[in-house]
Each structure stands twice: as structure tokens, then as C-alpha cells.
Computed example of a mutant assay.
Amino acid sequence: MTGRPTLNQRRRDTTRLEIARTAAALFAERGADATTAEEIALAAGISLRTFYRYFSVKEDAVAPLLAAGGRQWVDRLADGSADLPLREALESAAAASLTPADEAGAEMMQWTRSLLRDPRLEGTWQRVHAESEVRLRAVLAERCPADTDPLEIRLAAAAATAAIRVALEQWASSDAPATGPGSPRDLGARCMRELTEGLRLWKRVA
């Protein structure tokens, strides 16, 4: 057992992502309220039954895309930042995940802006960040001494996740570009510093 996803799991993940991209494009163009699950399924080339096998409601169809940035951020923190103090590692990983790496990333960022402006998707957005917080909590716990107060870890995970959420929401409500002043990266770094500065955890974990 290697822990690697099976072929069937990879296929399911690919299908979920394709549905999510289709839903995001339609929601960005028309809004979630004016888009039906049937239209998403048709545009994705699947049956309505298949759509509901993956998502219980149409709004959740974009969750894989909204969650991708948070997952990338937590993965970066877990895999590549052991040589940095924890607070710096959080900021570095967040900045990297909030910076579009290519045209596809820039397009995804613009989709994210449209999705975050849609009130019908607020519940999905909040659930995505709650799940990201749980994943971050586990990564922080791995870096902390065994006797660290679990409440400190939970507060740190909540603050760091909130920093990303607030930065993206602030950017989405503006007309700022995806890079440079006012960008998600710019706002994310500022929010991370503001929300995590006074936490005791940074004094315990170098």
C-alpha cells in the first residue's frame, strides 16, 4: 500500500475538476442563480445523473476549484518550508499560492473573483475554507512540539485561514489586478501579518 490514489480515484478527480471548470465558466458568465444543473451537465458532456453523483447541489460544483488554492497553500507549507520559521513559512506559502503562475492561473483567479461576488455561492465558499482550516491544523500540529496546547494550534490555523479568505474577498470586491498592488498576494501578506502577529504559537515554534 503506497497511499497513492487508484486509477479510478484519479479518473473521478479528473471528472470532478472538469465539471467544476464548466460550472465556474457558466457561473462567471450568467451567475449561479441563472444556471441550472442540467445546463452544467450538458456543457460538461455528462448526464444529469452523473452530475448528481458528484455534487448534491449545483453551487457545490465549483468547490473543487475554490478549494484548489487552499490545498496548494497547505501542501506547500507541508512539503517545502521546514527551513523557515513557521510564521514566515505560512506567509511564503500563501504568497506563492495567491500568485498566478501562468495564463491558466490568471484565468482561474478571474473566475474566482466572479464566483466570490455571487451571493449564491457564499455557503460553498465558507465550507471550502472550513475544510482548509482543518487541513492546516493537521500540518501545524506536525510542526509543533508534542506538548503544544491544541487551542493554540487551532487559533493559528483559524487566523491564517481567515487571512487568506479576507484577502481574496477584499480583492474580489475591488477592481484591483491579479498581480501587483491590491492583488491577492499583496493583500494576503498584509492580512497574514495582521492576523497572526500576536499569536503565542510563533514564540513556541521557530
Rank of each mutant, 00 (worst) to 15 (best):
M1Y: 02
T2G: 11
T2L: 12
R4I: 08
P5E: 00
N8C: 00
Q9A: 14
T14W: 07
T15A: 13
L17A: 09
E18W: 01
I19W: 03
I19K: 08
A20S: 13
A23C: 10
A23Q: 04
L26C: 05
F27P: 10
F27W: 06
A28K: 07
E29S: 12
G31V: 04
D33I: 08
D33A: 15
I40E: 00
A41M: 05
A41I: 12
A43W: 00
A44K: 06
A44P: 09
L48H: 13
L48N: 13
Y52H: 15
F55H: 13
F55N: 09
S56I: 09
V57D: 14
K58G: 00
E59Q: 15
D60V: 07
A61K: 11
A61E: 02
A61T: 13
V62A: 05
A63I: 03
P64V: 02
P64K: 05
L66E: 05
A68F: 03
G70N: 01
G70L: 00
R71M: 09
Q72K: 08
V74E: 00
A78L: 08
A82F: 06
L84V: 06
L86K: 02
E88V: 09
E88F: 00
L90N: 01
L90W: 02
E91Y: 00
S92A: 14
A94G: 11
A95T: 13
A96E: 15
A96Y: 06
S97W: 00
S97Q: 03
L98C: 09
T99Q: 08
D102S: 04
E103T: 11
E103G: 11
A106R: 14
A106G: 09
E107K: 12
Q110D: 11
Q110E: 15
T112P: 02
T112W: 01
L115V: 10
L115N: 09
L115Q: 11
L116H: 12
D118L: 04
P119I: 04
R120A: 12
L121A: 07
E122C: 04
E122I: 12
E122T: 15
G123L: 13
T124M: 07
T124F: 06
W125C: 09
W125V: 14
A130I: 10
E131W: 00
S132I: 14
E133T: 14
V134W: 07
A138T: 14
A138F: 03
L140S: 04
E142P: 02
E142F: 02
R143Q: 12
A146E: 13
D147M: 04
D149V: 06
L151C: 01
R154M: 08
R154E: 12
L155M: 10
A156I: 06
A157P: 06
A158T: 15
A158E: 07
A159Y: 04
A159T: 07
A162P: 01
A163T: 09
A163I: 11
I164H: 12
V166F: 08
L168K: 05
L168M: 13
E169N: 10
Q170V: 10
Q170H: 11
W171A: 05
S173C: 00
P177Y: 00
A178F: 00
T179L: 14
G180V: 11
G182V: 02
P184V: 04
P184W: 02
C191W: 11
R193Q: 13
E194R: 15
E194V: 14
L195V: 05
G198E: 13
L199G: 11
L199V: 10
L201A: 05
L201M: 06
R204M: 10
